[in-house]
Design a protein around this nucleic acid. Structure first.
Length: 755
RNA sequence: GGGCGAUUAGCUCAGUUGGUUAGAGCGCACGCUUCACACGCGUGAGGUCACAGGUUCGAAUCCUGUAUCGCCCACCA
């Protein structure tokens, strides 16, 4: 609509059709036609969104006036292949409320949209499609498969973006980013190379979490522990072995190289240091008895069979004691040893070992215990810890940080990534809200192990390392010369997500956007990805830019059903935001996700609430009808001359406006929106309007004029205050107002000046 | 095992630094086609603020403990 929104011509052109219709009808007895019936959101929302988009004001560079202060925020990128659910809707409602507030307050606001390739999830979807077609990725080959996945991702993207717009999100679409587009790919490989050169990314043969179902390695954070009952078997390796051991996984014992006991355990002290040769289930073992303070004398027999290759803790014990770490299970969760267990799946192998133990008279006890089984979040596969050659980020290795703007960390200081992550929050350079999540964050950092970043899937950012025989090359482009093979693995999706606040602003180039908008003002996201994403962004920004990625982290809760259960297909309790928008409008949907949605706490949502807020939108519509009818013919442009009563009403409204502003500044948009709702319905409509009727019907011309001005001023004022929460209905009404200080409410000045 | 949070009206939840008779939405009861609105208006019922102590002139709010529920983290094999 307005290619150059600042021009006078354009301002005229921006006048809505509705406004013109009203102006023509300036007959005193008439009000704009659309107010003669109830508010129907469906008739307005699409046109209003289009008008906003065409105004160009979503783009900070097009905003009118001097805007020395900026406000920037990235949209947590939804999966390209996803559809909008209540979690997204809640996130969009909250973020849009903040952005619209800051835009109206006169800041140069950027809310940057993007989509996420969601590597494993997306690849899995396409693989499922292929399965239906009777083929698989192996048959297709890497290149053809990737073409297929990219096409699918691209096609799906339009769905989620369209749905995002339906919520009224004032995102700057001109800066739309995608985790796998060229700019982001360049950022990712640059980041990898720089961390590799700093020695923080290394390739190592370490014990990792292998998901046999997904056929890939996953990070510690992608594991979910499921409680199950397991059988704890107590037995000896052999008749002449002095110490009985207990385990829930007898099949792994063919990989044992030691038995660990507590150094203070008197029962076993005399065996410490002794070594035994024996045959266990056809497999020859060499077992050394070692001491380890981590062994609990009270559990089982107080002796731990050490299986270095298939248990994280055993791996560490073996490392400390210089023990060999033979692997006995392969990527398909099958046994690799010779003898009766050869080639068996771990489950079958377990039964075979137990049978053998019973046969040999070695089994002493079996009992049921509750156990936490590690499973893969995505596939549900049971994790097999095993040693593999993978890429890691070392979070504890000291390095020299060339430049740091993080308080407490000097430029040129020797630091670790862990220290940087801690300092960012401890110094309050990043504020987490609500702040009780600080503790959780520190706890996570303190327990952090090397972050495994390589994945054995095809869809994602390929690791920028090439091999030729013994040679290795790491760079953003393939090396010159023949015979180089690129590493087949891709990067953990959170590696690229970690760069998001600055890769979307043009990094590694020193762009004006990066200069203007980084660190971003706020990151709004769910508390469930505090570790996955928030912490990784702090890590990446600290390393690559020496600064924090954002000033404030606003953590929202999850949207649950009215009984507090997670929404899921199987429970059939999903409330679809698009259905809600269709039935009750985007404003009602937004408000139901904002009012009384306490930060950091889960929200229980019932459809009745959404319906209630649709009624509220209609209430405002009717209030407008009353006010416009009441002020018809009044000179609204004239300087107000209020009676004492009306002066008090205005003062009361100003106080409300300040309170609302305070609440938003303190991130309590739940309270701000609640307060507005209450004022508009129960104060303005129920009391002020009712009290105005006799005044307007009387014949005191001065009192009438004063009240007309007051009613109109308060209406125009609360439309502004309410706009961040209910943008559509407020804008629709604004377009019909006869006297206003901005053509679009979206950029109208906020009634309270920034402090 | 460690950490975080919750417990306020039938249901879902607010209650910002302690301050009059603790609020809202939905639901409920009764009455209203009152000329902005039945997507509404008015009136009303409904709470020993989980429990037990403590601090205070004063506690839903601060402190200590208990109970119940929920979540996160963790290498009891």
């Amino acid at each position: 609509m307005c290619p150059t929104p600042a021009s006078a011509d354009c301002r005229n052109a921006a006048k809505s059709v509705l406004f013109e219709a009203m102006a023509e009808n300036a007959d005193e007895s008439k009000i704009p036609e659309q107010f003669l019936k109830a508010y129907a959101p469906q008739e307005h929302e699409a046109a209003i969104y289009q008008a906003w988009e065409e105004s160009g004001y979503f783009d900070p560079d097009n905003l009118p006036g001097e805007r020395p202060e900026t406000f920037s925020m990235v949209l947590p990128p939804p999966n390209v292949t996803g559809t909008l659910h209540m979690g997204h809707a809640s996130m969009l409602a909250i973020e849009d409320a903040f952005v619209r507030f800051e835009r109206m307050r006169g800041k140069k606001t950027l809310w940057l949209p993007g989509t996420d390739s969601a590597a494993i999830a997306t690849q899995a979807k396409v693989e499922k499609q292929l399965e239906k077609e009777g083929t698989n990725r192996g048959e297709l080959g890497r290149e053809a498969f990737l073409t297929r996945v990219n096409a699918f991702a691209h096609e799906s993207q339009a769905t989620i973006l369209g749905q995002t717009k339906a919520m009224g999100s004032s995102l700057d679409w001109s800066r739309l980013a995608y985790t796998l587009d060229d700019a982001r790919t360049r950022a990712v490989s640059t980041a990898f190379v720089r961390m590799y050169e700093a020695g923080l990314i290394y390739r190592g043969d370490r014990i990792v979490n292998w998901d046999p179902k997904g056929q890939t390695v996953i990070s510690d954070d992608e594991i979910v522990h499921e409680e199950r009952t397991a059988t704890l078997y107590t037995f000896r390796y052999a008749k002449d072995f002095p110490i009985p051991i207990s385990t829930t996984r007898p099949e792994t014992k063919v990989g044992d190289t030691a038995v660990a006991v507590n150094p203070d355990d008197e029962r076993y002290q005399r065996y410490i240091g002794q070594e035994f040769d024996l045959t266990f289930c056809d497999v020859p073992l060499h077992i050394k008895v070692v001491a380890d303070a981590g062994v609990d004398p009270a559990f089982g027999t107080g002796a731990l069979g050490v299986t270095p290759a298939h248990s994280h803790i055993d791996w560490e014990i073996a490392e400390k004691n210089g023990l060999p770490r033979p692997s006995v299970i392969n990527e398909y969760a099958k046994m690799t040893v010779e003898g009766r267990l050869s080639g068996l799946k771990v489950g079958a192998a377990r039964e075979a070992v137990v049978a053998w133990l019973a046969e040999e008279g070695l089994l002493e006890k079996q009992e049921d215990i509750a156990q936490n089984v590690a499973t893969a979040e995505r596939t549900g596969g049971i994790i097999e810890p095993m040693p593999k050659l993978q890429w890691f980020i070392d979070v504890t290795k000291p390095f020299v940080i060339p430049h740091s703007a993080i308080p407490g960390i000097e430029s040129g200081a020797t630091v670790t990534l862990k220290q940087l992550m801690r300092a960012a929050v401890e110094s309050k350079a990043v504020r987490i809200f609500p702040d009780n999540f600080d503790t959780t964050y520190y706890h996570w950092i303190d327990n952090l192990r090397p972050w495994c970043i390589s994945r054995q899937i095809w869809f994602g950012h390929r690791i920028p390392v090439w091999y030729r025989g013994e040679e290795r090359y790491c760079g953003t482009e393939a090396p010159e010369g023949d015979g180089w093979e690129q590493d087949p693995d891709t990067l953990d999706t959170w590696f690229s997500s970690g760069l998001w606040t600055f890769s979307t602003l043009g990094w590694p180039d020193a762009t004006p956007d990066l200069e203007a908008f980084h660190p971003t003002s706020m990151l709004e996201t769910g508390y469930d990805i505090l570790f996955f994403w928030v912490a990784r962004m702090i890590l990446m920004s600290a390393f690559h830019l020496g600064t924090v990625p954002f000033r404030t982290v606003y953590l929202h809760g999850l949207v649950r059903d009215e009984k507090g259960r997670k929404m899921s297909k199987s429970l059939g309790n999903i409330i679809d935001p698009l259905t809600m928008i269709e039935k009750y409008g985007a404003d009602a949907t937004r408000l139901s996700l904002l009012i009384q949605n306490t930060p950091g706490t889960d929200l229980k949502l019932a459809e009745a609430r959404v319906k209630g807020y649709k009624n509220f939108a209609n209430k405002i519509w009717n209030i407008t009808r009353f006010v416009l009818t009441s002020v018809a013919g009044a000179d609204l442009a004239a300087a107000p001359a209020y009676t004492a009563d009306d002066g008090a009403l205005i003062a009361e409204f100003d106080a409300l406006a300040r309170d609302v502003t305070d609440h938003i500044e303190r991130y309590r948009i739940d309270l701000a929106s609640d307060m507005l709702y209450h004022y508009i319905w129960h104060r303005f409509a129920d009391e002020i309007i009712e009290a105005s009727k006799p005044i307007l019907a009387d014949d005191d011309a001065e009192a009438i004029r004063s009240r007309q001005q007051a009613l109109y001023a308060i209406l125009a004022g609360f439309l502004k205050l309410l706009h961040p929460f209910m943008p559509f209905v407020t804008e629709a009404i604004w377009q019909a107002l006869p006297q206003k200080d901005a053509e679009l409410l979206m950029i109208a000045p906020w009634p309270v000046r920034a402090a």
